[in-house]
Structure formats: structure tokens, C-alpha cells
Simulated assay, not measured.
Amino acid sequence: MFTELCTKVFNQAIADFHVHNDVYKAMENPYEKAAIEHLLYMKNYIDTVQWHLEDIIRDPKIDPVAALELKRWIDRSNQERTDMVEYIDSYFLQQYSQVTPQAGASINTESPAWAIDRLSILALKIYHMQEEATRVDATPEHRAACQAKLDILLAQQVDLSTAIEELLQDIANGRKYMKVYRQMKMYNDPSLNPVLYAKK
């Protein structure tokens, strides 16, 4: 199943990042550029770095200048995450380009890649909640509370994976069709952000 591949690659990217646990270390993608695994790995690695940037920026003692630099890094990361989702959706558009939708076929509320984006974030939540559930310096109450949350996250992973597989099957069989709307983020575009174009 495609979601099994996703989870395998996501877990690999998370594990690879945590070898050094360093947001400044450059990603080394182990997959060929033409492979869908390359996009999945890159997508999750970007998510993983951003996860840790979000932790760092919440340090109450952070230097304000450093915080501003991190905020701009997070903004760039959000754009990269969106780009990766659109690349993955392009893969699916190609995969199903020969499918003729059935009469009455419907569109889904989100594209396959945006659902896979949620699966990527879920893999990160599971990894870090597992860390908390087994933290030796935490109280038994903390570990028990985190284990309960981990159980829910794992159930959510199964449910989301099942829903994605059903969506892909519906698209393959023509019961649903894909229609991808590019996100067209405005704040990064100097011609669309009034704060930026007003300064010209």
C-alpha cells in the first residue's frame, strides 16, 4: 500500500535527522530524484526540521534577533512544504492521467498529497510522543499520560492511512477525480504582499 511506503520513508527521514538532531545539518536524501520516495523523504525532512525550529523559537529566553531569523526560516520552510505537497500531487495526477471519471464522480475535500502531508506530521507526533512516553527522567504520571496520547495517535495513523488508501482506490476506479488548486501563497510574493510592494 502507498501509505505503508509513506510511513516507512517518513520514519527513515525522522530517524536520519535525529542521528545528529541539528537543524543546520544539510539533508542527505538517499533516494534517486526520479523516485517518489525522494519527494516523500524531502517532504518529511522539511517537516522534521520545522518541528524543531518551532520548539527553538518558543524558548522564552531566545534573542529577539535570532527569533526573527528563525521566523523567516519557518516562513521559507512553510513555502517549501507547500511546494513538496504540490510536487507529490503532480505525481498522482500523472499516475491517474489515463483514468476516465465515472458519471457522477465526486471530488474529495483535499487532494491525496495534502492528506499525505497530515500523515507526515502524524509520524512526527508519534515519534516525539513515544520519546515522552519513555522518558526516564519524567514522572510515571507524565509517561502514562503520554502513552495514552500515543495510543490515540497510533489509532489515528491507521485511520488516516485507511482513508488515503480508499481515496487513491476511488480515484483509480473513477469514483473520485483529482483537481489540484495551487496554494498561491500571497505573503511570499513581492507583487501580492502590500507591505512589500508598497516599499517599491
Rank of each mutant, 00 (worst) to 15 (best):
D22I: 03
D22W: 04
D22L: 04
D22F: 03
V23Q: 04
V23T: 13
Y24W: 10
K25G: 04
K25V: 07
E28N: 07
E28Q: 13
N29R: 03
N29F: 00
N29K: 02
Y31R: 02
E32Q: 12
K33C: 07
A34E: 15
A34K: 13
I36V: 15
I36W: 05
E37N: 06
L39Q: 15
Y41D: 03
Y41A: 01
M42V: 10
K43Y: 14
K43W: 11
N44V: 02
Y45S: 02
I46D: 12
I46P: 06
T48C: 10
T48P: 03
Q50C: 12
Q50W: 08
E54A: 09
E54Y: 15
D55P: 05
D55S: 09
D55C: 08
I56E: 06
I57Q: 06
R58K: 14
P60M: 00
K61T: 09
D63V: 01
D63A: 01
P64A: 02
P64H: 01
V65G: 04
V65W: 04
A66F: 10
A66D: 09
E69L: 10
K71S: 11
K71N: 09
K71D: 12
R72H: 14
W73R: 13
D75A: 15
D75V: 09
D75Q: 14
D75S: 13
S77C: 11
N78D: 09
T82Q: 03
T82S: 08
D83N: 12
D83K: 07
M84H: 11
M84G: 08
V85A: 05
V85D: 06
D89C: 03
D89F: 01
D89R: 02
S90N: 15
S90R: 14
S90K: 13
S90Y: 10
Y91L: 05
F92Y: 14
F92D: 06
Q95C: 13
Y96R: 01
S97R: 06
S97H: 07
Q98W: 05
Q98Y: 09
V99E: 00
T100E: 11
Q102K: 15
Q102N: 10
A103G: 08
I107V: 11
I107H: 07
I107K: 13
N108D: 13
N108G: 11
N108L: 13
N108R: 06
T109L: 12
T109C: 09
E110D: 13
E110I: 07
S111C: 05
S111G: 02
S111T: 15
P112K: 00
A113N: 05
W114M: 10
A115Y: 12
A115R: 15
I116L: 07
I116V: 08
I116Y: 07
D117I: 00
L119E: 05
L119Y: 04
S120P: 06
I121E: 14
L122Q: 02
L124Y: 07
L124W: 04
K125D: 11
I126T: 01
I126A: 00
I126F: 00
H128D: 05
H128M: 04
H128C: 03
E131R: 14
E131Q: 14
E131T: 06
E132C: 05
E132Y: 06
A133F: 01
A133H: 00
A133C: 03
T134Q: 11
T134K: 04
T134D: 12
R135S: 06
R135E: 09
R135F: 05
R135L: 07
R135G: 06
D137T: 14
A138S: 12
T139H: 03
P140W: 00
P140L: 00
E141Y: 09
R143G: 04
R143E: 00
A145M: 09
A145W: 07
